[in-house]
Amino acid sequence: MKIAFTTKGTEWNSPMDARFGRTEFIVIYDEETNTLSSFDNRAIENEAHGAGTATSKKLFELKPDVLITGNGPGQNAATVLKKLNVKIFGGAGEMTMKEAYEAYQSSDLAML
């Protein structure tokens, strides 16, 4: 399974970013190879409009099976993610990435 996180950093101890469209980083954890890879999304700060669609396009290219985030994507982003067939879990906006992963594993996150 490839799991994507919206985060404010690139390590297990980094805090999650509650936002989807304007998240600072997208981190991918590959459970099979036990590796982390990250995508720097901070350029999104310069976009006046359409942050949600731009970020979901990135996610589309990264092709995760699961997305763990905070408040959940807005309408437009949700439409794209539907195409991706990714399972979305929310409510992890206040955690670190590690805590979010553990909460996901013990089914403590709400599926959106």
């Binding site: 359409g50 669609t53 396009k57 437009n76």
Partner: peptide, 23 residues
């Protein structure tokens, strides 16, 4: 199309083009 759009209102996902009406 996705390259010319300054509003991120149209994107290409694989073999599909999506248009975001409100954007």
């Amino acid at each position: 199309c996705q390259e010319v759009c300054n509003y991120h209102a149209i994107i290409q996902l694989g073999t599909e083009i999506m248009v975001f009406d409100e954007l």
